[in-house]
């Protein structure tokens, strides 16, 4: 695999794309900001495999931490509550720190 695109702690945004078809990036994360937790796995592309294609080369899967208050404007729990989601690399774009 080439040099990893992200590093733990890095701010990222999930792309605000909304295609039909099979994808494993949950709707509630699209367009949202989070931080990279780690590179959790490398897996064939499910968007290809779902249609009978091999999905190779495999893609990095990054665990992204989303603050609940980022995801839901009306979230009433503590600020430290989070959702951690494995996101396939093409769905992520880097943010400037503080962005």
């Amino acid at each position: 695999m080439t040099r990893p695109r992200f590093r733990p702690g890095q701010p990222v945004r999930v792309k605000a794309l909304f295609p039909p078809g099979h994808c494993r990036t949950p709707f509630y994360t699209r367009g949202k900001r989070g931080r990279i937790l780690d590179l959790v796995d490398v897996e064939p592309d499910p968007e290809e495999r779902a249609y009978g294609r091999p999905g190779l080369p495999p893609l990095p899967v990054w665990r992204v931490v989303f603050a609940q208050h980022e995801l839901w404007p009306d979230y009433r729990g503590p600020a430290r509550d989070q959702v951690v989601v494995g996101i396939f690399e093409p769905w992520l774009e880097p943010l400037e720190d503080g962005g």
Partner: peptide, 11 residues
């Protein structure tokens, strides 16, 4: 077949 195809088929 793959799990991905199963999921896509369910969707």
């Amino acid at each position: 077949m793959t799990l991905d195809e199963l999921r896509r088929g369910i969707e």
